[in-house]
């Protein structure tokens, strides 16, 4: 029974390297997210400290996590595209 992709996909020789990159970026972001939660639980008063442009740690860190997700996404895409272009022939992926 066919339950593969809805469209025919080519072979992706870059899959392994992209997966490894994805795991590392995921771990990096998870650590930063975990630190944010840990500060909240361990010493939430620290969230009041002014750290940037009159903004406290909570706001700066919160906005930072959102902006960082976007930046990391762009870096990940740039790296993956580069790896795909190196390892796959035209028409693959």
């Amino acid at each position: 029974m066919d339950h593969g992709p809805a469209v025919k996909l080519g072979v992706d020789h870059a899959a392994k390297r992209k997966t490894r990159l994805g795991i590392w970026m995921f771990i990096s972001y998870t650590i930063l997210y975990g630190v944010f939660v840990a500060i909240g639980v361990a010493n939430y008063e620290a969230m009041k400290i002014i750290v940037f442009a009159d903004l406290n740690l909570a706001v700066t860190y919160g906005f930072g996590l959102i902006v960082l997700a976007i930046i990391m996404g762009l870096i990940y895409n740039w790296r993956c595209t580069k790896i795909e272009n190196e390892m796959n022939k035209e028409g693959e992926v």
């Binding site: 795991i23 970026m25 995921f26 998870t30 997210y33 996590l65 997700a69 990391m72 996404g73």
Partner: peptide, 8 residues
């Protein structure tokens, strides 16, 4: 943050 899990 959940979208990071989805993307990576």
């Amino acid at each position: 943050a959940g979208w990071v899990v989805a993307l990576f």
